[in-house]
Simulated scan of single mutants.
Amino acid sequence: MSVDAQYFAGLFAASDDPWAFRTRWYERRKRELIMASLPRQFHERIFEPACANGELSAALAERCTELLCHDLDPTAVTLARQRLASLPHVRVEQGRLPGDWPGGRFDLIVLSEIGYYLDPGQWLQVIEQSVASLTEDGGLLACHWLHPIDGCPQQGREVHALLEQRLPLYRVVRHEEADFLLEYWSCQPSVIDLDETCP
């Protein structure tokens, strides 16, 4: 992580919801779009780094057997653990990317609002780690703010440009608005379960 940990410590010292995930319509709507963009109804194992206070995590938890959440900031980890305490299939750990990448395989990795906090080299490492950790039918969802953020080594478009250049996956969803870009990439060219479709 290129941005200093004190940056996030300061945000969480001032508020338990520094980005207003719980109260802003923008954040609620974006969260619902993220969930609607997942082509599969259910996942076995999801990894969500940069989980913050766990608002998106709570929605992801409804769609999986196991959810692993990470955050760099210890206060965020505590808040997310409190938010998700009633869900035994969810683990929240403190971790700093790219160094603290978890073991095992995932059929969904969610990289939401994290890429611009990493320099290009670190982001490329996260991309490589993601690809190596996906199951053969797995997918990666990325969503990032498109406006400049002071102090960040990358902007949202640069983050997604590197995904497009380096991901050896199939992009099956792309949703762009003035404020954010959301994409879903799959290991398979189609994520439709043929057993669930009409003849």
Rank of each mutant, 00 (worst) to 15 (best):
C143I: 05
E113S: 09
G139H: 06
F106A: 12
L67Q: 13
Y184K: 00
Y170T: 05
Q82W: 12
L60H: 10
R96L: 13
Q125P: 01
L97N: 07
H89Y: 11
T75C: 06
P98M: 11
T75K: 08
D137R: 11
C187E: 07
L97P: 03
A85M: 11
H147G: 00
V126S: 05
F106R: 07
A178W: 00
L167A: 07
E136R: 08
V131C: 10
R157D: 00
I109Q: 11
L141H: 04
A59S: 15
R105L: 14
H144F: 02
D193G: 06
D71N: 08
Q94L: 12
R174W: 03
Q165M: 07
V90Q: 13
Y117C: 03
L67K: 03
A76E: 14
V110S: 14
Q82S: 15
H89L: 12
G99V: 06
G139T: 14
V173R: 07
W145V: 02
L163S: 02
L169R: 10
I109M: 09
S190R: 12
G115S: 04
L141Y: 02
G95T: 11
H160W: 00
T135S: 13
E177R: 03
P148W: 00
V131T: 11
L162F: 00
P148T: 02
W145I: 00
G138T: 09
L72M: 12
W145C: 01
V126Q: 05
S190Q: 09
E136P: 07
D137V: 06
D100H: 15
G151W: 01
D150S: 11
A76H: 11
S57M: 15
I127K: 06
S86F: 10
S112I: 09
D73A: 08
E128G: 11
L167R: 04
E158L: 03
S133T: 10
L67F: 11
G156S: 03
R91N: 13
A161W: 00
E177C: 00
D193L: 02
S130I: 06
V173P: 04
W185C: 02
S86P: 15
Q188M: 04
E62P: 07
S130M: 04
V92L: 08
L67D: 15
A142D: 01
L111V: 08
V172F: 01
E183Q: 08
Y116H: 06
P102L: 13
L108G: 10
G95M: 09
A58Y: 13
H70R: 06
L181Y: 00
Q122K: 06
S57F: 14
Q129L: 10
G138D: 04
L181V: 04
P74S: 09
D73K: 07
S112A: 14
Y116G: 07
P189V: 04
L169A: 08
L169W: 03
V92W: 10
V90W: 09
C69F: 04
G138L: 07
P98A: 14
V126L: 05
A161D: 12
W145Y: 02
C152L: 00
L124W: 05
L97D: 05
E113M: 06
